[in-house]
C-alpha cells in the first residue's frame, strides 16, 4: 500500500471545511464536488450546501479523517456526504460527528453515501458523540460492488435527545460486509434501522448491533437481512439494560427470496446475569468493576475522539 499522510476534513458548525488534501485522495466540500465532477451528481439528490466528498483513487496506508463538529448553540446542519473508493483500493477511514458541549441544542441531519467499487477493501469507523439536547437524524447508504470488502464500525458514545439512524447496505457478487453498530445511551429516544440487501451471488453480510441503555432511554432497533441471491447473512443483536425507565426493542428480521441463500439471527435483551457478575467478583473484582468490564467488553476497545485544532469537551 502507498505511504500517505493523514488526510483531514473538518467542518465546524456551518463553516466551509478546512481541508488537508493528498495526492491520490480528493477531499472537497460536497458543493465543490458537485460542480467539479459530473459523475458524482448521480449520488446527490440536488446540489448540496454542506458535507464532505472523499474520493480515494489509490491505496492509502494512513487513515483518512473527516470531522463534522457542532460548536455553537442552536446550529442546524444538513450535511450530504459522499465517499467513493475506486476499484481495488485499500484504505481506512474515520468519520467523527461531534458536539463540543452537551447543551448546544443542535439539529443535525446527515445523509451519507459510500460507494465501494470492485475489489476495494476498506475499514470505516464512525464515531458519534452528541450533546444530550441535540436532535440528530442520520442515514447512510453503503454500496458494495463485486468483491468489495468492508468492515464498518459505528460507535455512539454519547447519544442525543432524539436520534434516528438508518443504514441501507447493498452487496453485489462476492462482496463482504461486516457491519457493527454500538450505542451507549444515558438517556434519549433512539430509533435505529439497518437493512442489508444481499443482491449478489456468494456475498456475505454480518450485521452486529450492541446497545446499552443506562437510564431514561428508549431504543427501538430494527435489523433486516434481505437475500435476493445466493448469499449468506447473519444478524446479531444484543441489548443490555441498566437502571429504571429503560427499554430496548430489538427486531431482527430475515427475508429470504433465494433458496440458495442462508440467513440466520440471534438476539437477546436483558440485564447482566448474576452468574457472570458473581463469577467476576470471585476473581476479586467489585460489582462496579465487573459491570464496567462487561460494558467495555460489550462495546469493544474504547476510542477517544481527538480532532486536530478543535478542543473537544468530551
Amino acid at each position: 500500500m502507498k505511504n500517505a499522510k493523514t488526510v483531514n476534513y473538518t467542518q465546524i458548525d456551518n463553516q466551509a471545511a478546512t481541508i488537508v488534501d493528498e495526492k491520490d485522495v480528493v477531499i472537497l466540500n460536497s458543493s465543490q464536488a458537485y460542480d467539479n465532477y459530473d459523475w458524482c451528481r448521480e449520488w446527490y439528490d440536488e446540489k448540496p450546501e454542506e458535507g464532505y466528498f472523499v474520493w480515494v483513487k489509490k491505496s492509502c496506508s494512513e487513515t483518512i479523517n473527516t470531522n463534522v463538529v457542532v460548536s455553537s448553540p442552536s446550529i442546524t446542519q444538513n450535511a450530504k456526504n459522499l465517499v467513493v473508493i475506486d476499484e481495488g483500493v485499500e484504505t481506512k477511514m474515520q468519520h467523527n460527528f461531534v458536539a463540543k458541549n452537551n447543551d448546544l441544542l443542535a439539529n443535525h441531519t446527515g445523509t451519507t453515501k459510500v460507494v465501494v467499487k470492485q475489489g476495494a477493501k476498506i475499514e470505516i469507523n464512525h464515531n458519534l458523540a452528541w450533546g444530550n439536547q441535540d436532535t440528530v437524524e442520520s442515514s447512510m447508504d453503503l454500496i458494495l460492488d463485486k468483491g468489495a470488502d468492508v468492515v464498518f464500525s459505528q460507535r455512539c458514545q454519547k447519544v442525543p435527545k432524539v436520534f434516528k439512524l438508518k443504514h441501507t447496505n447493498h452487496l453485489d457478487d462476492n462482496a463482504n460486509l461486516d457491519f457493527v453498530t454500538t450505542i451507549l445511551a444515558d438517556g434519549g429516544n433512539i430509533e435505529m434501522s439497518d437493512f442489508t440487501y444481499l443482491n449478489g451471488k456468494k456475498c456475505k453480510g454480518l450485521s452486529t448491533t450492541r446497545m446499552i441503555a443506562r437510564k431514561d432511554t428508549v431504543i427501538d432497533s430494527e435489523t433486516q437481512m434481505i437475500a435476493a441471491s445466493s448469499g449468506t447473512g447473519h444478524i446479531d443483536c444484543m441489548g443490555l439494560l441498566f437502571g429504571k425507565e429503560c427499554s430496548i426493542k430489538a427486531i431482527p428480521e430475515l427475508i429470504n427470496n433465494d433458496k440458495e441463500a442462508s440467513l440466520t439471527h440471534e438476539a437477546s435483551v436483558g440485564k447482566i446475569s448474576d452468574e457472570i457478575l458473581n463469577y467476576l467478583r470471585s476473581r476479586g473484582l467489585t460489582e462496579e468493576e465487573s459491570i464496567k468490564l462487561i460494558i467495555d467488553g460489550f462495546l469493544g476497545d474504547e476510542e477517544k475522539i481527538t480532532i486536530e485544532g478543535v478542543e473537544l469537551a468530551l
Partner: peptide, 23 residues
C-alpha cells in the same frame, strides 16, 4: 462478600464457568 474472599486468596476453578463477552 465474594470479592473479599478472593482478596484473602481463595480461588475456584469452575466446572462450568459462564461465557463472557470480554477478551
Amino acid at each position: 462478600e465474594i470479592e473479599d474472599r478472593s482478596k484473602l486468596g481463595i480461588a475456584g476453578v469452575y466446572q462450568n464457568p459462564p461465557a463472557i463477552n470480554v477478551k
